[in-house]
Amino acid sequence: MEQTVSRQEASEAVQNHGWRYLLGALQMSVTVRTLAQAISLAADAVAVCGDDADRHLRVDVRPDRAVFTLQSLDRATVTTRDIELARRISATADKSGFLPEPGIGTGAPRSVQLLEIAIDALNIARIRPFWKAVLGYTDETGAGGPEDRLVDPVGQGPAIWFQQMDRARPQRNRIHIDISVPHDEAPRRIETALAAGGRLVSATRAPAFWVLADMEGNEACITTWQGRDS
């Protein structure tokens, strides 16, 4: 029976198979040499997922890589079925001679990541319809409440979520980017951002997220799945 799993369970179950857990989804990037290889690998993944492919699997194919994402789309989270499918896809990729891309610190430009845009608001329910309309976005599966996040229905753009403000803060930017990275890659990402001229604004919610800012005060958060389970 398909069951929802905790963040830690999901991360530990797939990490040794080349996958990483990123806030509600599993991702794996595989290096290829041609677009034809990427498409062939994607076709193999669809085949081993069988009837579950349409409900769980998304694939981004490029001439140099194929990025696989697994998530139970009707629950918008990771389940035991996603973990099983991840292991199947890893096995078929390995059988074909393809290996997942290594993480930061091994020479790779970067590992997998997910982007979200956060908008601060005094009245979320009032502004949410505007952003839904102007972006052509839709409600996340199983959501649709006045404070729930919005997603791109074709999966191309980052999710939008809304952060409740308790008072107006005109001196502070009201939109920031969240970069969700594998939990063990966050320190390196923060280190490189600080070396590039950034500053650490807050680490009080680490390891769930660190707030960084550029030299003009524009903020971005490095986030991980850790520190979110009660």
Rank of each mutant, 00 (worst) to 15 (best):
T80L: 01
G97Y: 11
T141K: 02
F68W: 10
D82C: 15
H56K: 02
V67S: 13
A133M: 08
L57D: 02
H56W: 03
G107D: 13
L135H: 14
H56F: 05
H176Q: 12
A121P: 04
D166K: 10
Y137S: 07
L85I: 04
D74C: 09
P109L: 11
P100T: 04
R172M: 08
Q164F: 11
A133V: 02
S180V: 13
A118F: 06
R169D: 13
L150S: 02
R149K: 12
D54R: 15
Q113V: 11
Q113H: 15
G142V: 07
P158V: 00
G97N: 13
T77N: 09
I89Y: 01
V78L: 01
L114R: 15
I124Y: 07
I104S: 14
T141W: 00
L150R: 04
Q163G: 10
P100N: 03
T77Y: 01
A86E: 01
L114Q: 12
A133L: 11
S180C: 13
A125Y: 09
G105C: 06
I177D: 10
R169G: 00
I119P: 05
F98K: 04
G97L: 10
G157V: 07
T106W: 11
P170H: 06
I89A: 03
R174E: 05
I160V: 12
R88I: 04
I127F: 03
A159D: 07
L73Y: 05
L73Q: 15
R167W: 02
A121D: 07
Q171G: 09
P146Y: 06
D139I: 12
A93N: 13
T79S: 15
F68H: 08
H56N: 15
D54G: 14
F98Q: 01
A125D: 14
R75H: 06
A121F: 10
E116Q: 11
S96Q: 04
P158A: 11
E101V: 11
G103M: 05
Q71D: 00
R75A: 15
G145N: 09
V151Y: 02
G136R: 06
G157K: 09
L99H: 11
R174Q: 09
P158F: 07
P129K: 12
P158R: 08
I117N: 00
R65K: 08
R87H: 03
E116T: 09
D148K: 00
L73C: 00
K132H: 01
I104F: 13
G142L: 03
V112Q: 01
R55H: 14
K95D: 03
Q156D: 02
A125V: 00
Q156A: 07
P158C: 06
E116K: 07
D94V: 07
R128M: 10
G157N: 06
V134I: 15
A91Q: 13
A93D: 03
P153G: 12
L115K: 08
G103F: 13
I175Y: 00
L135Q: 12
Q171W: 11
R75L: 15
I89N: 05
G155K: 10
L114H: 07
L150A: 03
W161K: 13
S90C: 12
L122A: 06
F98E: 00
A76Q: 02
R62T: 15
P153R: 14
L114K: 14
E116A: 12
A93L: 05
A53V: 13
L85M: 05
A108H: 05
D120G: 10
S72T: 15
Q163H: 07
E101L: 13
G145V: 10
T138D: 01
P158T: 09
R172I: 12
L99D: 03
G142P: 03
D82H: 05
M165C: 09
